[in-house]
Design a protein around this nucleic acid. Structure first.
Lengths: 263, 263
DNA sequence: ACAAAAGTGTTTTTTATACACCCATGC
DNA sequence: GCATGGGTGTATAAAAAACACTTTTGT
């Protein structure tokens, strides 16, 4: 886990040992932290699967898989995803690599010196489109973030890390538009932000003004009415208009300093 | 590399293949992007080593090592560092994991299906304190970032990624104080920012005012004079006073939007 | 005296924040 | 009619950005 780690390096005499004799052999796993937002119920959800194998049989875990021959890491992440859910759009990026020795119980009993390393990926999918693939036996479910149980391996730690990344992503980049439907209202967008970032991150009208001024949300003119209240305009994310902001240190939302990370 | 990767997942029928038959076996390497800033010459430096082995024998590369049995990833990163330089203080964090198949030429000829995965780490050391360990044979040198040659493996890509991280770190966190000496002047600090971020990121007096107002730089009262000009106060980073900002989405420097990532 | 570097302050412009208020619809 | 959610605007406060100016040193 990254952090401020000032440390004195041991003043060992440089030597060139026979590396090959003591190298660790690894199996590499990919674990996905897959988020989606249920805007109807204002809940942030994570995809969990019930483990079908030892270790941690019968315990909930992040969906993961081991990397196969000829397969890239990202490829494995996509494969895993496609085995669990069907979605049209998604956002995926690498999260962090957890690789301490003894983080996987299989290391002890199994073979000599084989270690399990986990490259975690962070994904965001559209809740409405995402169709879970229940293959009869395996348990799979969207869990509200606040209700996730104790997970297998170090997956709670990975999840926490993923949640932190999600918050940062929302603040600094337009990931939200990968999760929202093609056409969305500004309050859809606002509710997405509030469910992830917390209630009091910003006033609606200010949020609205700031986003609109950036100029990459275009009003389709189409109105939609949901229950009572004035009909809302449907907007579309304009990737062209966003282009100039790409790779710039753009800040979407300024979180006040006094807000703690996990409200 | 993370990024915006909307993608349709293939609608494959879920199946449970015999995973174990096709799993890839990995050796895991750790590659360090080690930066330091030569404030005297206003240069951002990366540590490069000359490869002593095939593949890419005789070519410059990031200092790296393979992970040994019982060794953590971060442990390997620290070991590598301590074999190359002696430093009192440093900042280290994980960068990214590069693990595509065929990224390492050894995969082809060597053993069957053994792949090489690289977990890259990002480090920042104090230039003045950092003493390079030249073990007689191996080449090792600080390279100005703008003059790095073509590197072994995908190390140019890793380096670019590390540079991006460095910029972000500088903007959002107090890493600068891990690179500066214990006592520093405000123009030392300013020059550090300009050499990394580019000339025109901010006006000196505004930079100064902003940093001082945050209240975690304390004036020691000691004056130091370097060449001509009025003597400058030596400041110290006050970790205590910074504590309340920790883990908050603090923004040190607001880069104007029109500044491109790589000026 | 003068250039160079450090440090202070002031003005202008932009942005955030907190509201107040109008609009359009369902019930 | 009126509650409900959508949308607009304004007034205040806090910033960033630009830049003029003073102070203290070396030469």
């Amino acid at each position: 886990m990254p952090g401020r780690t000032p440390k004195s390096t041991p003043k060992s005499t440089p030597k060139k040992p026979d590396d090959s004799a003591v190298l660790a052999d690894f199996k590499v796993g990919v674990d996905n932290v897959i988020f989606s937002v249920d805007t109807a119920q204002n809940r942030l959800l994570v995809l969990l699967v019930m483990r079908q194998e030892t270790p941690f049989l019968g315990q909930w875990s992040l969906p993961g898989t081991l990397v196969r021959q000829g397969e890239s890491l990202e490829g494995a992440a996509y494969r895993m995803l496609s085995e669990k859910i069907r979605v049209e759009n998604l956002y995926l990026e690498q999260l962090y690599t957890f690789g301490g020795p003894y983080r996987d119980p299989r290391e002890e009993k199994n073979s000599f010196g084989v270690r399990y390393l986990s490259v975690s990926y962070f994904a965001l999918v559209r809740f409405a489109e995402a169709e879970l693939i229940a293959d009869g036996v395996s348990g799979i479910a969207w869990y509200p973030l606040k209700q996730v149980p104790s997970l297998a391996f170090d997956h709670n730690e990975i999840l926490e890390y993923g949640y932190r990344r999600l918050r940062n992503k929302l603040e600094y980049s337009p990931v939200a538009f990968d999760v929202l439907p093609e056409l969305f209202t500004l309050s859809d967008l606002y509710q997405l932000y509030t469910t992830v970032l917390g209630e009091d991150f910003s006033d609606y009208s200010n949020f609205r003004a700031r986003l609109l001024k950036l100029g990459f949300l275009c009003d389709t003119g189409v109105k939609v009415t949901r229950g009572a209240g004035r009909p809302a305009s449907l907007y579309r994310f304009d990737a062209e208009a966003f282009a100039p902001f790409k790779d710039k240190p753009l800040v979407f939302i300024y979180l006040p300093l006094y807000l703690s990370m996990y409200p």
